[in-house]
Each structure stands twice: as structure tokens, then as C-alpha cells.
Design a protein around this nucleic acid. Structure first.
Length: 446
RNA sequence: GUGGCUAUAGUUCAGCGGCAGAACGCCUGUUUGUGGAGCAGGAUGUCAUGGGUUCAAAUCCCAUUAGCCACCCCA
């Protein structure tokens, strides 16, 4: 035995994606990209590294501890791996004011890095998939974002999901109305956000522990638990705290949003106003969104909202911005769990294996492969010198659906024999008609 | 960052003081122009690393490392 080599392993929380898995990932990516294009969003790519100063001060103290530094010996710039795609977007908008036409509708599908302790479904390197609209104050932009979310999830095959909508202004108003001091609003939100997990009593208990006044808690709980059908929910809140300016503005925004959604044929089956949904990030200023798959109950797959002030950090005047992030990693996991990948994805991109009998027929096999490739058939040409059985085994193991057999008999007759492995269907066709027959064999069930 | 669990073949795991095992996968053959299934055979391990206890350690103890899970936070 040779000397021990380097033990192959990965950095903590990072993954390789082998071909079979990549096919699934790329299927999800391409469906999502298609939907973005459908709504007129255009691609953006930014570097993996940003200047550290670009990232600092945007995510809050706790989150900043999770930013990866990327120094090299003798490096003069302070560099960090990007933590999300939103801050790079804000940087780009601030940096290319002459080149960017507003409204700027961009999407970005790229990895981000967080030095978190890895766990199931949580990695240190993962893809984010963001779509944002920069430059529109009006709720029509938020409605477009919700349209993208609903369309993408439907196209991926999710049947039962629910986009929860809330509004930061409304939450602020609720806090003020209930009499929770501004300094405790953060604690309040954090607890309220756990409503789904720990229930009303759990939230109450946590708020008490955090030292929030019992009476204020009571009023708050009443407001957030208002779960009437659709717009009636808003009517109720309006009647209770319409006098609080922040609340009134939040309610107005949500009404406007509902109007746009209805006009865009987005069914109320797919969204609801949920005043217990908060979202962690500090920079949200208006409507916020989060999508949960309801059947089965599998947690949230998108998150986002309006952040009208963030871009102001990179520009003299800020620009109103709203957007969403599809939790693409979780979506990919759920697609497997729910069996939503189309069967034709298989385990390989190869549609047909051209076999080789021996040295004397290899030239003809090579020619056949070239002919088929020229006609768009994804073809693998067998490259070793092994018997037919081995070649079939190879096709079978890789999940290649068709095998082309080209022996001396076939070459003499100017034909090629095609075999479909799934059911053993075998036909002989003229070389010139092979590509067409291959398509038929691939499409026909049997 | 806090707490818990685990580490044995390529993979999933059994073995829990006395010769290193199973299943799956892999390789070979079942006679050379046909895969999956069957049958027959075969290869594969510093039992994570370092120390300790013992006549004897994969097994018990300690440390280290790595992985997993929960919390915090988040996608």
C-alpha cells in the first residue's frame, strides 16, 4: 500500500454537490430564474469579497461576528466574504447611479457565507436568491415581489403555501399603542416572532420575563392575535388604533398592497395578514413578508420586505426598496421531501450511450456520436475497450435511458440499433433517422 | 457563544473486556453482440487521534479533533 495521503475533507459547514444533486439544484435555479425574467427582473453579479467597511454596521452586532474575514499575507485592503446579497445591492446602487435606470429590478442567485455553527439545513456557505425593486415607493412594487414569490413556488410544484404579510410601521404602532417603551421594542418583536413556535402563552411568559408591563402585554396580545378574514383584520386594527400615525400608515400600506394583489390575480388563498410575523433584520421599514409551506407544515421558504433607508448608507439620498429572498436551500430540501422534482431529471444529463465493439468499429461509433451530437442528442461515447455487457452496465448504473449498438452488421447495413433500457424496447433504424427515433424513444412512455 | 449525543469497511450500522462483523455498494465469474434479477467467488479496516487502566481494550477512563442535535440567531 502507498503511504497515507491527505485525508479528503471539507471546511466546517460547507458542501460539495455531486452531479446527481447538481441536476436538482440547477432545476430549481432555472425555474426561479425563468420566473424572475417573466416579471422583468435582470441578473446582477457582485464579487464574493467586499471591503469589510461595506459590510460593517449593517446587520447588527451579533450578526457581524458571523462575517468571514478574507485576509491574505501582506494584504492592504480589509476584505470580507459577503454575508448576504442585499448590502452588495445597496452598494451597487450607490456606486453606479449613472448606469442604473430606475426602477432597478434585479435578481441575484449566489452563495453567501456566515460563520455560524452548522446544523441541519444551516450551512456556512449557502445560496441566496434575491429579487428586489429599487426606486419605487408605491405598494405596486411590493405586489410585484409577492407575485414573483407566488409564481415561483407554484412553478416549482408547491401546492399549499401561505405568504404571511405584516408591516413594520404597524408593529411600531402596536408597540406605541400598547405602551411598550421604544427601548423594549426589539425584545417585544423577538418574542412575538416566536408566536408560531411557543404559542400565545409562551409569548406572554417571555415578555413578562423580559420585564414588559403586564397591561401592555395584554393589549399587545389582543392586537397581534387578531386573525379575521382578509381585510376585516385591517378594519379591526384601524378601529382600535387608527389614531396612532405609524399604525394608520401601516394599515394604509397593507390596504393598498391588497388592492394591487387582487388586480394581479393573486388569490387570497395564497396570502394572509399575520401580525405575529416579525422577521429579524433591523433595516425593514414597511411591509414584510414570509412564506410558509402549509401542507405539510415545513417552515418558511421565503422572507423579505421593504427597506427604504438602507441604500441611503451608500448614497446621498436613499431610494425606496422592497424585495424578497427565496430560501433556496430549504426549497431544494423540501422539493426532495415532497417529491417535486420532475422524473426526467434522472441522474445524468446523458440521453444516449454509443457503444463500441472494438478497435475496428470505433471510428464508426465516433462518427455516429458526432452526428447525433450535431443534431442535439446528449451523447456519451464509450471510451474504454470492454465488452458490450460492461457498456450496458455502465449505462444502467448512470441512468442513461438509451443505448446505441453499432456492430459490424449494423455498419454494413447502414443502420444503428437503439435500445431503451427501461423496458428493453429495441429498434433498428437508418443512421440518418437515428436522432428522430431517439427523440421518440425518449418521449414515449412505452 | 451555551448545553447534549456520536466516532468500527466506500456507505449505513452491529459488536460493549478475550481471533474485526452484517447489509448495501465495489470487483471477478456465470464463456466472449445486450444492462437490471439470480447464483458462485473475492477485495477492503492504524476500530477518529493521543495518553491511561488491565494478563488482555474497538469495548472501560481522560484529553484532543471532527461530525450530529437542541438553544441563541437565522436562510
Amino acid at each position: 500500500m502507498p503511504e497515507p495521503k491527505i485525508k479528503p475533507r471539507l471546511p466546517k459547514g460547507m458542501r460539495d454537490f455531486l452531479p446527481q444533486e447538481m441536476l436538482k439544484r440547477e432545476h430549481v435555479f432555472s425555474v426561479v430564474r425563468e420566473v424572475f425574467h417573466l416579471y422583468g427582473f435582470e441578473p446582477l453579479q457582485t464579487p464574493v469579497l467586499e471591503l469589510t467597511e461595506t459590510l460593517m454596521g449593517k446587520y447588527g452586532e451579533d450578526a457581524e461576528k458571523l462575517i468571514f474575514n478574507a485576509q491574505h499575507p501582506g494584504g492592504k485592503e480589509e476584505l470580507s466574504l459577503r454575508y448576504d446579497l442585499t448590502v452588495p445591492l445597496a452598494r451597487v446602487v450607490g456606486q453606479y447611479q449613472n448606469e442604473i435606470t430606475l426602477p432597478f429590478k434585479r435578481y441575484q442567485l449566489s452563495p453567501v457565507w456566515r460563520a455560524e455553527r452548522p446544523q441541519r439545513g444551516r450551512y456556512r456557505e449557502f445560496y441566496q436568491c434575491d429579487a428586489d425593486i429599487v426606486g419605487i415607493k408605491d405598494m405596486s412594487a411590493d405586489a410585484e415581489i409577492l407575485g414573483v414569490i407566488v409564481t415561483a413556488l407554484k412553478r416549482l410544484g408547491f401546492l399549499q403555501f401561505n405568504v404571511k404579510i405584516n408591516n413594520r410601521k404597524l408593529l411600531t404602532g402596536m408597540g406605541q399603542f400598547s405602551g411598550v417603551p421604544d427601548s423594549q421594542l426589539g425584545d417585544l418583536y423577538r418574542s412575538v416572532d416566536k408566536f408560531d413556535k411557543i404559542g400565545a402563552d409562551g409569548v406572554k411568559g417571555e415578555l413578562l420575563t423580559r420585564g414588559i408591563d403586564n397591561e401592555a402585554i395584554g393589549r399587545m396580545m389582543d392586537l397581534i392575535q387578531s386573525r379575521q378574514e382578509g381585510l376585516e383584520n385591517l378594519d379591526y386594527l384601524q378601529s382600535v388604533m387608527g389614531d396612532i400615525p405609524a399604525a394608520a400608515e401601516g394599515i394604509r400600506e397593507l390596504r393598498e398592497l391588497a388592492g394591487h394583489l387582487s388586480a394581479a390575480y393573486i388569490s387570497m388563498e395564497n396570502y394572509e395578514f399575520d401580525f405575529t410575523m416579525v422577521r429579524g433584520l433591523g433595516y425593514y421599514t414597511g411591509p414584510i413578508f414570509e412564506t410558509v409551506i402549509t401542507e405539510p407544515n415545513l417552515g418558511s421558504v421565503t422572507g423579505g420586505g421593504r427597506y427604504d433607508n438602507l441604500i441611503g448608507l451608500f448614497r446621498k439620498d436613499s431610494l425606496p426598496t422592497t424585495g424578497t429572498s427565496l430560501g433556496i436551500e430549504r426549497i431544494i430540501d423540501l422539493m426532495s421531501e415532497l417529491n417535486l422534482y420532475p422524473a426526467h431529471l434522472g441522474g445524468t444529463v446523458v440521453q444516449l450511450l454509443v457503444t463500441v465493439f472494438g478497435d475496428e468499429t470505433r471510428i464508426e461509433s465516433t462518427k455516429l456520436a458526432a452526428e447525433l451530437r450535431a443534431q442535439g442528442v446528449r451523447t456519451e461515447l464509450y471510451m474504454e475497450d470492454k465488452n458490450l455487457g460492461k457498456q450496458f452496465q455502465h449505462a444502467d448504473k448512470k441512468g442513461i435511458p438509451l443505448v446505441a449498438i453499432l456492430g459490424t452488421d449494423e455498419i454494413y447495413q447502414g443502420v444503428v440499433k437503439l435500445k431503451r433500457l427501461k423496458d428493453g424496447e429495441e429498434v433498428s433504424v437508418e443512421r440518418g433517422a437515428a436522432a428522430e427515433t431517439i427523440q421518440t424513444l425518449l418521449e414515449q412512455p412505452i
